[in-house]
Amino acid sequence: MTSLNVNGQPLTVDVPDDMPLLWALRDGAGMTGTKFGCGIAQCGACTVHLDGKPVRSCVMPVSAAKGKAVTTIEGMAKDKVGHAVQTAWRKLDVVQCGYCQSGQIMSATALLKEKHKPTDADIDQAMSGNVCRCATYVRIRAAIHAAAASLV
């Protein structure tokens, strides 16, 4: 049994300590918004926040999340910045297949918490770990700028 704090709520999952946080969330807790894309921290589909910092949950053992605040896509609607990012994503219709977008939104939210007005170069750097095979990148950039503007 591992006790976690996910999106501000206590959550107990019955999984081995070495199970990556991704699978603890998905298979252990049924929270399937966080996605499996590569399993080796190369695509960012599994991005969640650990104490506010973006991490790749596919390579992080669930034990490493004990005592820390885990935030997932399911918690974004209640996060001021996260909600602004979701709203911008919808306004610009960023998504295509949508499978990577939870991770994109988590990374974008983390970026905007660090930098209130990121440049294109900031965005490219912060987001280059998040792969989108539909190549929605043009709109991801635009939506991050739009979200930043909406938070001013």
Binding site: G33, T72, I73, E74, M76, A77, W89, D93, I105
Partner: peptide
């Protein structure tokens, strides 16, 4: 018009269901 995509909401809040999500 620019009609909002019908799958935008579900694909931005984690609720869209893919095969991988079936339990």
């Amino acid at each position: 018009q620019q009609l909002a995509r019908k799958d935008s909401s579900a694909k931005t809040d984690g609720s869209a269901q893919f095969t991988q999500d079936v339990q």
